[in-house]
Design a protein around this nucleic acid. Structure first.
Length: 122
DNA sequence: TCCTTGACTCAGA
DNA sequence: CTCTGAGCCAAGG
């Protein structure tokens, strides 16, 4: 399969584990975007925050492509409020979220204002 | 070797 | 609110 790694971070494994850790914090019935998750992660040493912002979302996506079964991957969607998946996986994700109380509109979009995760704490 | 295509986001029209 | 195009890197046809 194609692995859209886009420039592996300094510590690919550690990065993915960190991503999963953040995803696991997303409360039931809420969703987070790749960028949101990326913003919660520490910027790798030697890399500017600006570059990190451009790369991180892809890395998060790459991490989700191989996430463990105990990670609520379905709660991670793109900044457009939609699933970046395709085909059967996309449908499965929507069903899982609807089962948690997340609503989708006619265009299969989630209202981030209502169901968006505010963050781990604040 | 060139061109397309990725679990992406942001700014601009 | 919706649609485009640019930015970034690698793998496959």
């Amino acid at each position: 399969m194609m692995k859209p790694r886009f420039t592996s971070p300094p510590d690919p494994q550690g990065f993915r584990i960190h991503v999963w850790e953040v995803v696991r914090m997303i409360p039931l019935g809420k969703v987070a975007t790749y960028g949101q998750i990326a913003a919660l992660l520490p910027v790798p040493p030697g890399m500017s925050a600006q570059d990190f912002r451009a790369f991180a979302p892809r890395w998060v996506g790459g991490a989700m492509a191989a996430c463990p079964a105990d990670v609520p991957w379905q709660r991670v969607i793109n900044a457009q409020g939609k699933s970046s998946l395709k085909g059967a996986d996309q449908s499965r994700q929507q069903e899982l979220l609807e089962a948690e109380g997340v609503e989708f509109d006619d265009r299969q979009r989630v209202d981030l204002k209502r169901f968006g995760w505010n963050g781990p704490e604040k």
